[in-house]
Design a binder for these strands. Structure first.
Lengths: 206, 206
DNA sequence: ACTTTTTCTTGCACTTCTTGCATATTTGCA
DNA sequence: TGCAAATATGCAAGAAGTGCAAGAAAAAGT
């Protein structure tokens, strides 16, 4: 019954979980490396699996599809956006909540790795499609978060429009980042929101 | 050298072209029918090809991919939008140009077939991804058209933002159409634009 | 009318992604 | 240690997509 020194590393909740995380990370890293090196279509799953030291079957066990290896690197974004928006004062106008929340998150994602990833996605049609699909999930979650924060119905039109606009500008900012990697997406995003307010503010002539 | 009565149907520019159009249309029709009946993933290319009376190889010769069979039914939309926007008075505010142009096009697409197609796409993850990707093409073309109409630079921020907003609202309107097939997407689109103006008009408190 | 040339169709082989299933192998726990 | 659960792997099969070359059909030239 010697329970002493059962775990040398107290934060790891078991060898199994740790190995799983390591394998996951190894597939991600090797996958991204090979995709950038040889193109997403140029690198096969067998190559990635071999580089990660697992069988192809196991790789697909971890990721479900080739695309998922790429998108898993962005998997945290939706939740981060939701949190950033939820942290805003609830008396703030909808559009400001969105602008502020997205700017917070964008600032945290200006890493070289993320730039590489963004480049890869924009170079690959198949990944672009998947990327846009993921953004729709973001939009949905964002709209819902806004509605909760404001105490409105989950399908409130204003919240959905605000979320849609936020995501649209986020996409544009991503493209702008690729064009000007030294600036980061934030500046463009701010400008886009400013332009939007100016544009929508002016009423059409009667 | 009797060239008399060479062609009974003068408007057909050759048997080859006509057959091509017929085959194209037959694959579209049978494809859509089978996809709706058995699901996009439930129907194989072999089945569609057989139903259309061609080989699988020929089908892929016409369409390039399974998805293209579906999206070819929406292929005219980008051009229609560009035309509708280009037909607007050029002194109109950007947002009004977009709203008006999109409403024109939307009105022309409220057919039962298009509703079926929209349903199919929204039921199928793979098609949703492709759909969003196509919308990006629309957005790009729309932004460019706006810039030309206004005599601005092709990458003008205001035009890009206006285009992005228009496409976002178009997507939302499509979803609203699925939820309320009796109304059509127009009403929701109008409301969304109104909400947007109201939202963006109110300046944040200093 | 006949031949030539061009275009289209088809079959075949091949690669790759993806899934299902059965079978080891490893890890956690009593 | 020994049993149960989770994990890894191999194998088989299905389906999408691509390249190639032979065959069929239409158009053009003579």
């Amino acid at each position: 019954m010697q329970e002493v020194q059962e775990k040398v590393f107290p934060d790891e909740q078991g060898l199994r979980a740790r190995k799983r995380q390591e394998t996951h990370a190894r597939i991600q890293a090797e996958g991204l490396r090979l995709f950038i090196e040889k193109g997403f279509d140029g690198a096969t799953l067998d190559e990635v699996a071999a580089a990660a030291g697992v069988s192809r079957r196991t790789l697909l066990n971890y990721f479900g599809s080739k695309e998922e290896i790429v998108f898993s690197l962005k998997a945290q974004i939706p939740e981060m956006i939701a949190q950033a928006v939820a942290a805003r004062p609830c008396d703030e106008p909808l559009l400001d909540m969105v602008e502020g929340g997205l700017a917070d998150v964008a600032a945290r994602f200006q890493t070289p790795d993320m730039l590489d990833l963004t480049r890869l996605i924009h170079q690959t049609p198949a990944l672009q499609a998947g990327d846009h699909a993921k953004y729709e999930g973001v939009e949905r979650l964002l709209a819902q978060t806004l509605a909760e924060r404001k105490g409105l119905a989950p399908d409130d039109v204003a919240c959905r429009v605000a979320a849609a606009i936020g995501v649209s500008i986020m996409k544009l900012a991503g493209e702008a980042w690729l064009a000007h990697p030294d600036e980061g997406p934030e500046r463009f995003g701010r400008e886009a929101f400013a332009v939007l307010r100016r544009m929508a503010g002016q009423r059409p002539p009667p």
